[in-house]
Simulated assay, not measured.
Amino acid sequence: MTTVTNHCCETMSRQVDVSCDEHDNPYACPDALVEFSAKFQEYGLIIHDGGTSSSTIAFCPWCGRRLPASQRERWFEELERRGIEPGEDDIPAEFEDERWLASPPR
């Protein structure tokens, strides 16, 4: 299983990496359309309603390619296997991005 280091197309890369001089938070910036969660390998369309919601997408809106399968369930399973309870225990740093996908099981 590979992690996403390159996005499916140039437009997706620009959208995921959009920077704004006015807004530090992409959820506050009307120009930010897509978020990418490295730890879950998920893409989502940002819902600009004042919160931090997004709607997960399975295909790129620009090139039409299928996006990688979400690793959200696997992330929680791996934490559980290691005896880590999200919300109660500290989450190891490697679980905050895609590094956990490459680490050997303990």
Rank of each mutant, 00 (worst) to 15 (best):
T52L: 00
V18P: 01
D90R: 12
E88N: 11
K39F: 06
T2M: 03
E42Y: 00
I57W: 02
E77Q: 15
F76W: 07
I84L: 06
S53G: 13
D21C: 03
C60A: 04
W100C: 09
S70G: 10
P104I: 10
C60V: 06
R106S: 08
D89M: 03
A69I: 03
R74P: 08
Q71L: 05
W62S: 03
E10S: 11
Q15C: 09
E96T: 15
N6V: 00
D21R: 04
R81G: 10
E10N: 13
V4F: 02
E88F: 07
D90L: 11
G51K: 14
I84E: 06
A58D: 08
C8M: 05
D49T: 14
D31H: 06
R82S: 08
I57S: 03
P61A: 02
T5V: 09
Q15F: 01
W100K: 10
C8H: 02
V34Q: 01
E96A: 11
I46W: 09
E78T: 15
P30G: 12
D24L: 07
P92K: 01
I57H: 02
K39S: 10
S13I: 00
L101I: 15
P61D: 01
T2V: 07
D89N: 14
R99C: 08
P30R: 11
V4Q: 09
L33S: 05
L79K: 13
T5N: 13
N25L: 13
D90Y: 05
C29N: 11
R65Q: 06
R82A: 02
G64E: 02
E88H: 11
R72F: 01
E10R: 13
D31N: 10
L67G: 08
W75P: 12
S70W: 06
T3P: 11
Y43E: 02
G64F: 04
Q15W: 01
P105F: 00
R66Y: 03
C29D: 09
E22G: 03
P86L: 00
L33T: 08
A58P: 07
E80C: 05
D31C: 01
R65P: 00
A38K: 14
L45M: 13
Q71F: 00
E22A: 07
R99D: 15
E73K: 11
D21P: 06
R72K: 10
D49M: 08
T11I: 12
F95W: 09
R106Y: 01
K39M: 04
G87F: 00
V18D: 03
R82L: 09
C9N: 02
M12H: 05
I57F: 03
R106H: 07
Q15K: 14
P105N: 05
F36S: 11
R74F: 04
